[in-house]
């Protein structure tokens, strides 16, 4: 069986200076989890779809202890769907496929979903916590409205993680020296049955916020920051459960949390 880490190599500057290129913190977390989740005897493989420069990121990954690395020769502007198709053909049969939740260029974030569909395996995306057990993993997924979903992963799956979930280990010096001469497998990219014809840059959606109250600028700043307002002092009371519940509901209503 194989555990895979998918890495997106990005030049984050408009002048195409690849000295500043790299992978996102989320991809680094994915790489660390790939290394941590591999069982004894399992191969850990890094895959990156991109130009020749992407091999630098793959060598850095190999230096961290990977078994091998694959570069899929693909235009960096290829759609997530095309990238997923190409990666799927390269890593078919993998037990776990780890991806970053976002890339350095803040793409659409849809590649892991496409990849799970192409591989025909489950997906757990946008993970903010991962606990690796012997036979399964417990993962926490971020949902809208500050909600969380706790899941257990037992079978083959694509997992995408946020950058804060793990810190990539520092490669050993021996690893770095060996990675310099490591052979990177290069395979041709595939076209996709579904292709985006246009892709807009990352733009967070605008939110309507009420203007702060107050007639003067100082009042409005105070209103925004709550500066100078009396803070609610905590209070300890000892009551029977029904009375305690009523007291809590009353306090929440007073503070404006209930209608």
């Amino acid at each position: 069986m194989t555990v895979v880490a998918c890495l997106k190599w990005v030049i984050p500057r408009v002048d195409d200076d690849d000295r500043f290129a790299g992978i996102s913190a989320a991809d680094q977390s994915a790489l660390e989890f790939a290394l941590l989740s591999a069982r004894p005897g399992e191969d850990v493989v890094a895959v990156s779809a991109g130009p020749l420069g992407a091999e630098r990121a793959l060598r850095d990954a190999v230096a961290c202890g990977l078994s091998r690395a694959i570069r899929i020769d693909l235009d960096p502007r290829a759609s997530s769907s095309a990238v997923a198709s190409s990666i799927a053909s390269a890593v078919a049969g993998a037990r776990l496929v780890w991806c970053g939740d976002y890339s350095l260029d803040r793409g659409t974030g849809s590649m892991p979903g496409f990849l799970a569909a192409r591989l025909g395996i489950g997906q757990a995306l946008g993970l903010i916590d991962v606990t690796i057990g012997d036979d399964s993993m417990s993962v926490v997924r971020r949902l809208d409205g500050a909600r969380r979903e706790i899941m257990r992963v037992t079978g083959p799956a694509v997992l995408s993680v946020e950058g804060s979930t793990a810190r990539l280990r520092r490669a050993s010096l021996r690893g770095v020296l060996a990675a310099d001469n490591a052979i990177i497998d290069v395979i041709a990219g595939m076209s996709s049955p579904i292709d985006a014809v246009d892709e807009k840059p990352y733009r967070p959606r605008a939110r309507a916020l009420a203007a702060p109250s107050g007639t003067s600028a100082l009042d409005r700043v105070r209103s925004l920051t709550d500066a100078g307002t009396a803070t609610q002092r905590s209070e300890t009371v000892v009551l029977d459960p029904p009375e305690a519940a009523a007291r809590i509901v009353g306090a929440l209503r007073d503070w404006g949390y209930l209608g």
Partner: peptide
């Protein structure tokens, strides 16, 4: 000696 793990050369 370097700051990397296993970092003596």
């Amino acid at each position: 000696r370097t700051d990397r793990p296993d970092g003596d050369l």
